[in-house]
Structures are given as C-alpha cells and as structure tokens.
Computed example of a mutant assay.
Amino acid sequence: MECVFGLVGDGFAILAADTSAVHSILVHKSNEDKIMVLDSHKLVAASGEPGDRVQFTEFIQKNVALYQFRNGIPLTTAAAANFTRGELASALRKNPYAVNILMAGYDKETGPSLYYIDYIATMHKVDKGAFGYGSYFSLSMMDRHYHSGMTVEEAIDLVDKCIIEIRSRLVVAPPNFVIKIVDKDGAREYAWRESVKDAHVASA
C-alpha cells in the first residue's frame, strides 16, 4: 500500500511518502524514510520492492557524489534524472529493479523540477506525480487543486488533502507520512504527518 507523490511550486518542489515497511499482512516498521537526500539540492522518493528500493537509490546517490568528486561540479537535476533512467534501462534486460522514482531538485539556472521515472525506465518531467495505490487518490486531488506558482503553504495544504484522502479511501492505509522540500536553500525534511498525532489534534 505504498504512497509516494510530489509537486512543483513557486521556487520549490515537495515530495511526500508513506513510512510503512510492509510484507504481506505484516507491518515491520512505520518510520521507514522512503525519500533520500541525493545531494544538497536533490531529493529522490522511491517505491517498490524494499531491497531494490534501498539498493538502487543508494547506488544513484553514491554515483552522483562520485561525479561531483571527480569533476568538481554537481550534476543538474535533469542530468541526474537521465543518469537514473539510463541505469534502470541498462538493468532492464539483465536484472531489473522493481523501483519507481520521483526525483525533485533545484538548479540556479532553471529553478525547481520534478521527474517521473518508473521501473521500465520511462522518464518524464512533470509538475505533479505519484506512485503506488495512493496515486489513485493523490493524482485526482492534485488534478483538482494544483495550479502553477503555488506557495509553500498552498502546496503543504494540498499534500495534507492528499494524505487525508488516502487515509479515508484505502482499506489498509499507511498511518504515517514524511514530507521533504527542496528549494534555493537546499533539500531538507519539512514535516511528518502521524495519524496518532493528527487524531489527537482533531479531538482537541
């Protein structure tokens, strides 16, 4: 029941993901961070088979760091997304990774951007995107409420709307979500949304 989604606003990009590590009918943990800080101004949110998700995102992170170490300049978000797509495409006919990725970044020249990369190495630059069962609801909410040039407050409000919709619609909904943001000041964690705390706030 994974849920990963993101959007681009005015000078920033936001990614949100559930934090549940689940196998069959068992919940192993509910604080799994599925959004990796790729470098100072890039984020990668991934969904898919847990082993592939962790191994592949770490592989991309280390190769992006290696490129910067060797060349003295970081990859742009577009270049990092194309590198990621290339690695998925190379693995596709050998030992494919069951992983879907949303990559968000901020570049001085082009501003914020969001890339949609799925497990068969399809890549698109998008304004909003989602993976997992939660995408059925988060995409429809974003289609309804998203507009270009959103402020951080508007974007967070939309993310919260998506989380509430996912929790109310999915039979087995993930209880907790992590939200991260990237802008000119860098990539960082913005907030957690925990169902226990939300219920306490709602009843207060």
Rank of each mutant, 00 (worst) to 15 (best):
C3K: 08
L7K: 13
L7W: 08
V8M: 03
F12H: 11
F12R: 06
F12W: 04
A13K: 09
I14F: 05
I14E: 03
H23Y: 08
H23Q: 06
S24K: 14
L26A: 03
V37T: 15
V37Q: 14
V37M: 14
H41G: 02
L43E: 08
A45N: 02
E49W: 02
E49S: 06
G51L: 01
R53P: 00
V54R: 06
E58T: 08
Q61V: 03
K62G: 04
I73V: 15
I73C: 11
P74A: 12
T76R: 10
A81S: 14
E87M: 12
S90E: 07
S90A: 07
S90K: 11
A91R: 11
A91H: 01
K108T: 11
L114M: 05
Y119L: 13
I120S: 10
S140W: 05
H147E: 10
S148D: 09
M150N: 12
M150T: 10
V152N: 11
E154T: 01
D157M: 09
D157E: 15
V159A: 06
I163G: 09
I164C: 07
E165W: 03
V171C: 01
P174W: 01
N176E: 03
I179V: 15
D185S: 10
A187V: 08
Y190S: 07
Y190G: 02
E194V: 13
E194F: 07
